[in-house]
């Protein structure tokens, strides 16, 4: 349907040729009591990018996400969305599934549309479509407490996908899951991205996760939070699980680890 066209395009478009989505222009964020969460961060996000923000705690990864989500505003600098994106939609996936326990899976996924005053019935097709994308189509009527941790997180992702967001912000979404589930969700997330081709900014403190998932890794340093270095992972999508065991993967992981070490060394 309408989301199919950009998907095939963006997934196949090489990194340098993608249209610009948004630009963070030398952004600084200082919280009360002079805590510098972010100093002079510049980042250009292109349509179809999968960007990982990788860094130690306190490096301003989550602050960057909250700035993009417009939940907080920069102290200096600004975020410029591209002209074609003045009606941009944002979705967020948090570390916790953040579901409403009193609502069924279907009703949780309905939330963005419910807040846009659309009835459940009128968007049921879209709800089921989103649930199918995360393989939860048989759990529409279940309550979150009946689901496993991984399924709750998939519900959360379905809720984020239902609006066909211009950008999906993921704040350490799989950090609380066990490794088996995390690998599975990493895999599923890449497949989803192939299917719908949205732009993702993914906050993580796992080198392995960032290398497997993203085509750009932004390594950040802490105190004050800032961009240390940007790496590009040239491996084309779709990436299968065999990528995890390949020599390139190891090499990328080493480079990323070294960059992270440098970033942490700078802090001390």
């Amino acid at each position: 349907m309408n989301n199919q066209k950009p998907s095939t395009k963006s997934a196949a478009t090489p990194l340098g040729l993608r249209p610009k989505l948004l630009e963070m222009r030398s952004i600084a964020k200082v919280f009360a009591e002079d805590v510098v969460a972010l100093s002079d961060m510049s980042l250009t996000v292109n349509v179809g990018d999968f960007i990982s923000l990788l860094g130690p705690s306190g490096c301003g990864k989550s602050t960057a996400l909250r700035l993009i989500a417009d939940l907080i505003h920069p102290t200096t600098g600004r975020i410029a969305w591209s002209e074609t994106e003045h009606n941009h939609t944002i979705s967020v996936v948090f570390q916790e599934p953040t579901l409403m326990p009193w609502a069924t899976v279907g009703e949780n996924v309905w939330l963005p549309f419910r807040l846009a005053s659309r009835s459940y019935r009128s968007c049921r097709d879209e709800i089921m479509e989103a649930l199918r994308l995360v393989s939860l189509e048989n759990f529409e009527k279940s309550y979150p407490r009946e689901l496993s941790g991984g399924m709750k997180m998939r519900t959360s992702i379905a809720r984020a996908l239902i609006t066909h967001p211009s950008i999906m912000l993921m704040d350490e979404p799989f950090a609380a899951l066990d490794e088996i589930n995390r690998f599975k969700l990493n895999h599923d997330l890449l497949q989803l991205k192939e299917k719908i081709g949205c732009t993702v900014i993914f906050v993580t403190h796992s080198v392995f996760e960032s290398v497997f998932l993203s085509d750009r890794i932004v390594v950040m340093a802490a105190r004050p939070g800032r961009v240390h270095r940007e790496l590009t992972i040239e491996q084309p999508y779709p990436r299968s699980d065999s990528f995890r065991t390949s020599a390139e993967y190891s090499a990328y992981c080493r480079t990323a680890s070294e960059a992270l070490q440098e970033a942490m060394g700078e802090t001390n």
């Binding site: 417009d70 939940l71 944002i90 979705s91 967020v92 916790e96 953040t98 846009a116």
Partner: peptide, 13 residues
Amino acid sequence: DHNLRDLFRIYGA
């Protein structure tokens, strides 16, 4: 939940 509050804000509730 604070994250849910944020989510409501993002969706313009």
